[in-house]
Design a protein around this nucleic acid. Structure first.
Lengths: 348, 348
DNA sequence: CTGAAAGCGCTAACAA
DNA sequence: TTGTTAGCGCTTTCAG
């Protein structure tokens, strides 16, 4: 199917065309392009001239077809959403490691849809990526074993995979959440609510674990009514927080286990005039958290570092590392700003 | 170079291997894989079985080598920074359009470095991307003419290219900035400061234009001391704002022409106790802007939409659109929240 | 309905 | 120092 075109797009010249233009064999041109040496200066000059004149642009993929190991210098990255400021930090971290290696990164959003994980992973594999950095969202990642056996490196970020042993880089959600809740308990709170993300998300489950373990280890009673799970977004978080705070026996402190939930909680507190009465510690840092009133205390984690470490492990694997898969925990930090240091008060 | 390996990675099977396994010609397998029909049901079944058994995964790039037009179903995207929440929105918008087309997106950060633009664009071209969505940061984009002539679609976002006519999707920075400044003037301000981003950035220059034109059209004197340019980050913005506000003849209002600058300004105002005394209108929305005190008035723009529109134009080009290049302006909105509606006050 | 031959742009042997 | 011959995994073309 030819276009009806007038000028028509001129195709890019091939190695052979450059060779013809320079009056040499095409292998010689390849030598010059790849700087392989063993080319007479005079010849090289002629080739260089032809290269410029024809504006030769090499085709990297054509090369990788035959090349040693067939590496494409390409990796695939799946994250929650490329436009999500938190998830995008992972992307930024990966990029910092990939860029200097001249490895290009395919990035794609999963939006927590298991089918998207399968689909995009397969699309990446069809494009022969050298490696995959994945945020697992499906229930099982064993389908990747085959790809790994065939030489594609795989590293997981943020959550551990199921049905598969592979490198993972994440934060310790359980202990970090426990730290957050313990902090509230240290300030005298006994009725601490936990608002969590969708339970299909592993980190949401782990953060709830942390909450429970902190409560238990301090012999605080866990009131089921104060544990609200499966909150999908900020609006639902707002509603849940209001319901809680306006109930007969409200909590004196809230552990909100995800950044959007924290925002919803803050809004609810503000609308109810309780910002300075009910303590809040959030998991995930919140934008402008230090400029809010009161400034919000959070468990902060360096997601860019998660991305960096994951990319480093990935390239180690690509470069032949055969060691046992391991899980690397990136540290978190309790950032004390004010909202988490409010003491229990009698709420009218 | 073979690895010394024991088990060694099993390569993925090729079309021919599947064919051998099924006892058919490899072209028949290709027909089944591509659903080309004209294959006897019985044969197709045998092939399907072989496909599953060997876990065949097609190689998309090998195909694109010869295929019609040689499309790789791949595009390249360059933005300010993939981890920058604002720029990441562009990425999100692009993805929304690219994903359903089964087109994978390479994303990369430029960090305002001209050399990075050249380098990564070339890397994308070597990978034979079908199209490029670029945030221009170099002084001249004419080097891309050749790629366009050779059939690579190119669309610019956020800023217009130089030395090249091509589709561009951006907001009208000049008029939007003028709106922001006009809004402040409407509230009685005469001494309005302008704090702008690095002047090498086109939008920074255009926003300053908008500031100047709004001032002039209202016959307000432009005090050079109130125009601070080339602010590279939040810290410098903070320092600049403090200097301004602590000067002998401070402004009564501030037009801060970029989101990080706005944050710096807000911090300075807060630290000086002037949050409710000096008006602020920011360009770019600010995270949690409505939860700050006072809530911050901004020029908000839908960057995701910029990405979507750009991707739509790109695919139109890829699909053969030959129309004249055009610039599409995506609308902005003045979001009135409080900080921009403070009237001029005598600052001690 | 099926298959064999040619070739995409390159790299990898192996000659000359 | 050079060039030739293969062939990567696929699509295209053309025969059976």
């Amino acid at each position: 199917m030819e276009e009806s075109d007038g000028p028509g797009p001129s195709r890019r010249p091939t190695l052979r065309q450059v060779a013809a233009h320079a009056g040499v064999g095409f292998k010689t041109v390849a030598r010059v392009v790849n700087g392989e040496g063993s080319v007479a200066p005079a010849t090289a000059a002629r080739v260089q001239a032809a290269l410029r004149e024809l504006n030769y642009v090499p085709d990297d993929f054509a090369g990788s077809l035959k090349k040693d190991g067939g590496r494409t210098r390409t990796i695939g990255l799946t994250i929650s959403n490329v436009a999500n400021p938190l998830a995008a930090q992972i992307h930024g971290g990966v990029e910092i490691v990939a860029m200097p290696r001249n490895v290009a990164t395919f990035a794609v959003s999963l939006n927590e849809q298991p089918s998207a994980e399968i689909e995009h992973t397969r699309a990446f594999l069809r494009r022969r990526v050298d490696g995959l950095i994945l945020t697992p969202v499906a229930d099982d990642q064993s389908y990747l074993q085959l790809a790994i056996d065939r030489g594609t490196a795989v590293v997981f970020v943020d959550r551990e995979p199921a049905g598969l042993r592979a490198d993972t880089v994440k934060v310790d959600d359980v202990s970090s959440a426990a730290t957050a809740v313990g902090h509230l308990a240290d300030f005298g709170h006994r009725r601490i609510a936990h608002l969590g993300d969708r339970v299909r998300i592993q980190t949401a489950r782990q953060r709830k674990e942390g909450y429970l373990s902190a409560m238990r280890s301090r012999d605080l009673p866990v009131d089921e009514r104060l544990v609200i799970l499966d909150i999908p977004d900020e609006l639902h978080a707002y509603a849940a927080a209001r319901r809680l705070l306006e109930s007969d026996d409200p909590p004196t402190a809230i552990h909100s286990a995800q950044n959007l939930i924290t925002v919803g909680v803050i809004r609810a507190l503000r609308d109810l005039g309780l910002s300075r009465k009910v303590a809040v510690v959030g998991f995930d840092d919140v934008a402008m958290g230090d400029l809010l009133d009161p400034p919000v205390t959070v468990i902060s984690h360096d997601l860019a570092r998660v991305g960096r470490v994951a990319a480093e492990r990935l390239f180690a694997r690509i470069d032949g590392d055969q060691s046992e898969p391991r899980t690397v925990f990136v540290p978190t930090e309790l950032v004390v700003r004010g909202s988490g240091e409010i003491r229990p008060q009698l709420v009218s």
